[in-house]
Write a protein that binds this DNA or RNA. Structure first.
Lengths: 333, 333
DNA sequence: GTGAAAGCGCTAACAA
DNA sequence: TTGTTAGCGCTTTCAC
């Protein structure tokens, strides 16, 4: 193990000079800087992370609590995580991966000073972890939006606006009977924050627009086919659909796009653009900018770490993409 | 921040006693232990991770390099990661998440002493990161199996045996013309270790059994439907299929199970059991025990950390599950 | 522009 | 069975 002392000796300077060359917190003569940097390179020195964090009282690590189990929108979770890791690394931070469904894990990491900040995913409308986070002195940020206003900053995709956007788009297309086919029963039951908000946005906008609207749960399995058939049978006037169930999408996409029993349907899928692109028969879609969300959340928490102020809630606005746009951008790339 | 010194003062003992109470490396009288533990609880003390790792020269952190981008078997990756995190936590280790496609990230984490060991996923047959790992003094383990025997231990699912198993099962069912419909072109082209091995196992076993066999790439998108049709058109005698493409499975499952143009097909899907369970029309499947794989890999690297010996290659054996078994276990749970 | 030295909060000899 | 203390490798005052 190469230590800072060896680098200092090799460069013929003091330890503190080496430290200041690395941190840039002091002006150093060009000549000295060169010698030190040469020594660092020659010896392949990298500072010991723990020693550094013990002395500086910061770890340059962000704790990320992500839902890892298959079931809920795996692609979305993966992309958010990828965005978080990428943006963190771009700012000299690393990511400590914490298991979900575990409030204790959050305080453990924080109290052991393993992390400088916490990023928490998979938020429920009334999430028990929020109380834990509020007791901690560690900066924290939610990727999600719980029901109550609270002391923890939030960053998320604006699912409520997405619901409204879809409803008005369907109205614009002339539909009077619309349906949101969404998350599986379990997710709805847990009041996962995004499902609640999407439902609300869709239903309120539909009501304002005078549409006959309903929300329907849907399994993320092959059984989605039968489920969708049942929904359409039960509501024979429905011709406009907002579909938000990434797992079920592949099963039902072909069926929906070709219409059912001669009934022509317009389907708006709410999913990441690259998922939508794997389903060419889709008509419209609303992108869930998952990676961008991870990036935004990370930027926000980095702001907190710099002591800068932050809007308490930051929502990424939805954008409608018609299939022709998607095809165009796909062929362009 | 509560320090060990405050705990010591509160309990009326020296700081080393507190340390030894926590580590159990010294016998402590029951009375003293009680007082110390009480003080720890009262003050909500948790030891400072960096201070501890600086003094003890170990971090209790394992670096995990995982492929985070959507594209390759998202469910499988997630479950492996979940298994790793779970098993690591059960043994007092945390997981530092490193971005993939980045050999430099591995040595950075190792040389900064951020991790005690490295776990590397998404291995290609001839992976450039192996050379990097061999230069490091940090224990490392691959989840995957590169072509050449090398100094780094490997744990993986036995894809080659799975290929053989599928071929012989199809032979047993009476098929003489079989096909492996597998990963997308890009994955094959990269020589991802698992794809290479699956192909080899399937083809060699088929040859031994006198089957007419072929391997076909398949996109993980809706286009898989057309791709599969093309494959079946091109090889009109094929009636037995090993299907290994989780992304495409939902698109083609129904079609394959119902037979095509009156041709009856037997399809064995190679995918995690919980994915297979979401596709009720599947006949046979071979489980990819992804979470178990993560657990095994983590156990193996923990052994390395304890200085115990390890078999250089450890492969989880495939098991065939018929659809009736799967249905039975699903209804039992 | 540079150096000396006092910690940061622990662990693990060494001593009793 | 317990206490004292010398580090672990760095950052950052304080001094020049």
């Amino acid at each position: 193990m190469v230590t800072i002392a060896e680098v200092a000796r090799a460069a013929g300077v003091s330890i503190s000079t080496v430290s200041y060359v690395m941190s840039g917190k002091r002006t150093i003569s060009q000549e000295t800087r060169d010698r030190v940097e040469q020594a660092i390179a020659d010896l392949k020195y990298s500072p010991h992370a723990s020693a550094r964090s013990l002395a500086s009282r910061s770890t340059n690590v962000i704790g990320l609590q992500a839902p890892l189990r298959a079931g809920v929108d795996v692609h979305v979770v993966m992309e958010i995580v990828a965005g978080v890791v990428r943006e963190a690394r771009a700012n000299q931070y690393d990511i400590l991966l914490l298991t979900s469904d575990d409030a204790a894990g959050l305080s453990r990491a924080a109290r052991a000073s393993m992390v400088d900040a916490l990023l928490v995913m998979d938020i429920e409308s009334d999430d028990p972890r929020i109380a834990t986070l509020e007791e901690l002195e560690t900066p924290a940020l939610l990727i999600g939006l719980p029901a109550g206003a609270d002391g923890i900053a939030c960053v998320d995709f604006d699912f409520e606006a997405a619901g409204r956007l879809a409803a008005s788009r369907l109205a614009e297309l002339g539909h009077t009977h619309v349906a949101l086919i969404g998350a599986p029963e379990e997710v709805m039951a847990r009041h996962t924050s995004y499902a609640d908000r999407l439902n609300r946005g869709f239903l309120t906008a539909a009501e304002e627009l005078g549409l006959d609207a309903g929300v329907h749960a849907c399994p993320s399995s092959q059984e989605s086919v039968a489920a969708v058939d049942a929904i359409l049978a039960e509501r024979p006037d429905v011709t406009g659909i907002l579909f938000h169930n990434e797992g079920a999408l592949p099963y039902v996409a072909g069926r929906l796009s070709s219409g059912i029993d001669g009934r022509e349907l317009d389907v708006i899928a709410l999913c990441p653009a690259n998922v939508a692109r794997t389903v060419p028969t889709l008509t419209d879609s609303i992108d869930v900018p998952a990676e961008e969300l991870g990036v935004s959340a990370t930027r926000a928490i980095l702001q907190l770490l710099e002591g800068r102020d932050l809007p308490p809630v930051q929502l990424l606005a939805p954008r409608l993409e018609s299939a022709s746009d998607a095809a165009a951008s796909a062929s362009a790339s």
